[in-house]
Design a protein around this nucleic acid. Sequence first.
DNA 1: AATATCACG
DNA 2: GACGTACGTGATATTT
Length: 931
Amino acid sequence: MSTTFGKGCHLHLIDGSAFIFRAYHALPPLTRKSDGLPIGAVSGFCNMLQRYVEGNAGSDVTHVAVIFDKGSHTFRNDMYDQYKANREAMPEDLRPQMPLTREATKAFNIACEEIEGFEADDIIATLARQAREAGGRCTIISSDKDMMQLVGDGVEMYDAMKQKRIDRDGVFEKFGVFPEGVVDVQALAGDSVDNVPGAPGIGIKTAALLINEYGNLEELLDRAEEIKQPKRRQTLIDHRAQIELSKRLVTLDGNMSLDFTLDDLEVRDPIADELIDFLARMEFRTLTKRISEALDAPMPEIKDVAIAAPSDAPEAIAFEDAAYTCVRDMAALQPWIDHAYERGYVAVDTETTGLNDMRADLVGISLCTEAGKACYIPLTHKDAGTDDLFGSDDLADGQINLEAAIAALKPLLEDQSVMKIGQNMKYDAKIFSRYGIDIAPFDDTMLLSYAQHAGLHNHGMDALSERYLNHTPIPIKPLLGTGKSAITFDRVPIDQATDYAAEDADITLRLWQVLKPSLHAAKTTRVYETMERPLVPVLAQMERYGIKVDRDTLSRMSNAFAQKMAGLEAEIHEFAGRPFNVGSPAQVGEILFDEMGLEGGKKGKNGKYATGADVLEDLATEHELPRRVLDWRQLSKLKSTYTDALQDHINPDTGRVHTSYSIAGASTGRLASTDPNLQNIPIRSEEGRRIREAFIAEEGKVLVALDYSQIELRILAHVADIDSLKQAFRDGQDIHAMTASEMFDVPLDEMTPDVRRQAKAINFGVIYGISGFGLARNLRIPRSEAQGFIDRYFERFPGIKEYMNDTTAFAKAHDRVETLFGRVIHTPNINAKGPHAGFAKRAAINAPIQGTAADIIRRAMIRMPDAIADQPAKMLLQVHDELLFEVDEGGVDKLIKTAKDVMENAADPVVKLDVPLIVDAGQGANWAEAH
DNA sequence: AATATCACG
DNA sequence: GACGTACGTGATATTT
């Protein structure tokens, strides 16, 4: 029944990606009611297709196709590696919807085409050319200016949004040239969206002027010397190669070889069953109804069960009654995999031999596909053994072979259309990656909670289960035991392991059913999608790389510290008149205040003297002993926490130290580093700083440190809108000197270091929610004087006081504050009375500033891997306002340029800061040199 | 398990 | 007018 495409035929080509992105951005994040699958873009896409079909009833269109992009790497990336390089990554909640838009197109019985490595534009160009050569007409349904070069001679565009046809005149309106001149204009003007460089300083207007004058780009470039304006002439001469490259980038490939013909695109009527079945599966009630009526087909029933079961719905199986399955062979595993595909989501949890994801081995995997329905797949449990306490090293019977299970689960865990749900997915993802599985897409209940409830409670599974499911999870302690007799999970009997592990997956799924739907109402979808979840793979990668630490350097330092400590200890005992434990604050207090009778001993609530550094510092003027104790403590700290402990953290397999970052630990959005903490390696004291010499680059490589300069003060200047501070940052002035000058009426060139130091303390104090008492203690000045400084400061910078008042008022009204990027930090004690009140107030003032800085570096980190993908460089560590890289010796300059650029522009495009962000760079063979 | 101390931004 | 007080973290040793 097929006609050959030719004269009288009319081909419609729909730009699929344009439809999808418009649908995604125009609609609020809609989720499928039964399971929470993000579905907003698919819904919008279907509505647009439907409107398109309705609008075309009775028109002359004979052929139609929806054309999609496929793959992110195209031949244009081979030409120019920066092509489309500044594109934001696809939102996580859009990715699983992409395959569904293809399904939708097919459900409408419209041809659906995509070709790996090519943009939709090229396919469209090729089809448009074929249609034209066959003597037919072609309409491209898109408003993308990149395709305007195709217009003319039977080819037109149609802007579905503005409902406007674009013909040759329409193109002229947009570009100032007719379609044949479009690529020349684009080559000159460049395109910031696709990152096509063009000629600097030349926009569309100028470009059109030039092309119209000289006829075409080649002519223009050949005769560039004739241009009168000197700057323009020079630009064209200097950037000739870049302009020619730009032209190649914007020119569409209309000569692709396709494995289908125009005839395959003939308009077909929808098949009612298939279309309605698809729409019903997506649970689009309104659209299903409308189309059922239009096609005169019965309206199917769409189940109306929300994932978070309403209270009047039948209760999900109680945890106590849930019977969990132990999967012991492949035949038993398959139904679980099938069910996961069917539902489109599955909760996953791994059990391992330990808590260190760099070293622990996989013991088993649990899956949960609906509340109360979960299984545990034991893989490497050891034989229980009969009388031997430790059991044998043989594998227990009745377990699937590890490799076979991995092979069976890998497609599911990597399938873009199935959402994997985990609690603290970074851990499981790291384990899976060691077994060759790149788990995606995923949701993380810990991060869902963190995005919504930071500041209210912690986000561990136990706390979440208690709070949101009213259920206490089975504790792990009784299974593993404690102390010396503790066993690893592979020694836990499989039946006990099943109850525990399957329940974890069950809990995780139920938490997701509660926490995912509430994300949107909490207005934290964007924070979760763009600043929490995408960070997981980035951190996982950094943790896996680790940083090289030289054991010998640490060991030598430990010995040196031990010697010095022994000397100090002897002196201290001498001064005290008797031996005692210098490491015991209680005993130090006794010696100082009871036995030696020094003044100023203050007892805390436990009846112990305070002997903190500030106290000893004051006493040091009166006696030799306190100074010695201070020195001893410094060395003790350095030795025990750093030079000794760090050695134990060197991974024997890699020779490197692998920290673990907790994403949901700090309420403000900062990361925290644990096991070991690499965010508090000494630097302030000269002795401590030398510990950084043990953090080294691999042979032939260099460590590069990039840190934001004064980022929190810059954010303060922006949020409090202080013109003089903002201007000072724009001018690159010394901000503390400038503050001092304003406050104390001292001209900048007469500034003394001491006055500047005081202003610096005040600047930082402001960020922390300043008080006279705190400033007085920090500067060691009388409280009245400190209060005077603060009053003076607010007098000179009234906007700061206003910011503080506004922030606390907002917190009191809403019980939360927010960062510039919308991160929510709850302040539950802000309306409390008593001593809590002061804490809460200062925390509320600090949180938006610290949190915004945290957001900015998070954004930089998320963009960094793509930005440096082509460089011999790895991002290793984050220390709040600093990123540390390891890079091949020859690649230092390029890395600094790229990474600095990413960091300085990390707020874009969501927040436009009134102050520039400045990043300083250092490099060296070790961390001390790099900083 | 709680407390005191001190390392970092 | 008194209360207490700089913000955010993690690791270690001592003491309970």
